[in-house]
Each structure stands twice: as structure tokens, then as C-alpha cells.
Nucleic acid binder design. Structure first.
Lengths: 123, 123
DNA sequence: TCTCTGTTTAGACGAACGTCAAGACAGGCG
DNA sequence: CGCCTGTCTTGACGTTCGTCTAAACAGAGA
């Protein structure tokens, strides 16, 4: 069963809207927390945080799995699993071009997470 | 044994320095990822994300556990456990004043996380 | 078509997580 | 002091996570 009919999609992750006021400004509602927490969770592993950074900072905006995998002391399947986690969290998207698969960051959700964490300059 | 002698403290979470360039600008090194990933992980649970927000947005900059607990359908010990997780991640700090315990956000690390997630205004 | 390389899926394992009930600790008040 | 209230710790339970090996899938090239 594809469990995506849940009525939880309070936030449209595809718009460029800032989505939410900073976490420190207004209390985050349960629905918003349920939607955004998985994204933070996906970033909550050192390997995935590095993968995310390698992808987001790659030249041309995309990184090949063949460049990502050898950067870690982990097997290919394990890296693939972590990439799937990032994909399911909406943080990256994948595209196969011929032999290789390329991953690209999705800046919109990154901006939303950053906005949620924003704090007054010197509060 | 208090396992905090680990030689991993690449980042001083107590300074006000921006600490790291955005994740999308330069590849996050393994040491930095190891230090910051636990903070993201701590925010990766809906309950903790809401707790963090309730604390950070509370009037006076602090929130009493007695106000936090009744906001969820969870037992006191469970909320306490989540607060401990936030504390160990360096996101909040606690202080007991008489009968009640008050939690306060630590804006420095929040700023660091937000800075790491920062993305150019428009791709 | 067959074979080779690159990537993902499936299944299994131990470790860590989220939750609870029960108990321990801290502080205020008779 | 003894009791009560508020908070944290302990120990347990089932679930999820991170990793691996083995196998399946997708494309390129002979």
C-alpha cells in the first residue's frame, strides 16, 4: 500500500514559499513537525550529511554515484541505501543518464529547513 | 566513563563564530559531519521538533517542563527522555529553580545549523 | 545475444530508538 | 520530620536503523 494518501501534507514542498516562520518565533504545529522532522532525520547521519553536501556543492549542481561511493569506507549498497533515504526525505532527486545515475539537491526544502532554524541575529 | 575525551571536537559549539560554510558551498568534512549530525538527528523527531520550538519561542526565552508535558499525549518520562536528547545534542540547556525545571534554547548551535543549510537566494 | 560494469533491491543481523511502568530523587509545606 | 508534587532514571518491550552479503536489474559494447 502506498501510504501517501495521509492528510498530513500541510506544506507544499514544491513551492518556493518560505513555508514556515522560524521555529523560535512561533510554535511549530504538529502537522508541520510531522512533515519536516523526517528531513532533519535524514540529515542526522554523518554519512548522509556528507553525501548531501557533496551533491549540493558539486560542480554543475549534480554528482554521480560513481564519485560518491569511493569517498566512504562503505559498500555500494550501503551508499545506495543512504541516497534512497535522502531521496525519500525530498532532499535530493535522481536521474539516470546512460550508465550512471546523477543526484541533484532540491534547494527549496533546504531553504525551508534553514528558515525554520533561523534565529534573530543576536537574540 | 564520561566519553567526552573524543578527539572529534573540531567545532567549538560555544563560540559565536559561523563555524562552517554552507553545505552547498563546500563539502562538509567528516569531522564536522560527525559533530553536527547528532543535532539534526535530535531534531528529526516530531515531538522533539515541537519541544524545541516551544522552548525557543517561549516568552522570557525559557519553558517549564510543567508547560511542555501536557502539550503531548505522552507520559512525563517520555518527554523527559526527549528533553535529555535535546540537551545532549547541545540544543537546549536546563536549569532547576525550586520545584520546576526550565529549559532554554541555545541559539548559537541553531544559527550554525541554519548557516550550514543556507542556500543561494535563487539557485 | 552474451558479458561486463554500475546501481538498486532483498534479506539478515546487531545496535539504537521511542515508549511505557515503576521506582528514585529534589524541593516545598504542614 | 513526613508527606506531597514535580522531574528524572531505570529496566523492559517492540520497532526502526545502519550495515553487510547475495542477488536482481539497467545499459553499453562486442
Amino acid at each position: 500500500m502506498s501510504n501517501q494518501a495521509a492528510p498530513l501534507t500541510v506544506i507544499d514542498l514544491n513551492t518556493d514559499a518560505p513555508c514556515c516562520p522560524p521555529l523560535a518565533q512561533r510554535r511549530v504545529p504538529a502537522g508541520t513537525a510531522a512533515v519536516l522532522a523526517p528531513a532533519f532525520k535524514a540529515l542526522g547521519d554523518p554519512v548522509r550529511l556528507q553525501l548531501m553536501s557533496m551533491i549540493a556543492s558539486a560542480e554543475g549542481g549534480e554528482a554521480c554515484v560513481c564519485d560518491l561511493t569511493p569517498a566512504f569506507d562503505l559498500t555500494g549498497p550501503t551508499i545506495s541505501h543512504h541516497l534512497k533515504t535522502l531521496r525519500e526525505a525530498g532532499l535530493v532527486e535522481a536521474e539516470r543518464r546512460g550508465t550512471w545515475v546523477y543526484y541533484r539537491a532540491r534547494p527549496v526544502i533546504l531553504r525551508q529547513l534553514a528558515a525554520l532554524l533561523a534565529v534573530e541575529p543576536s537574540g
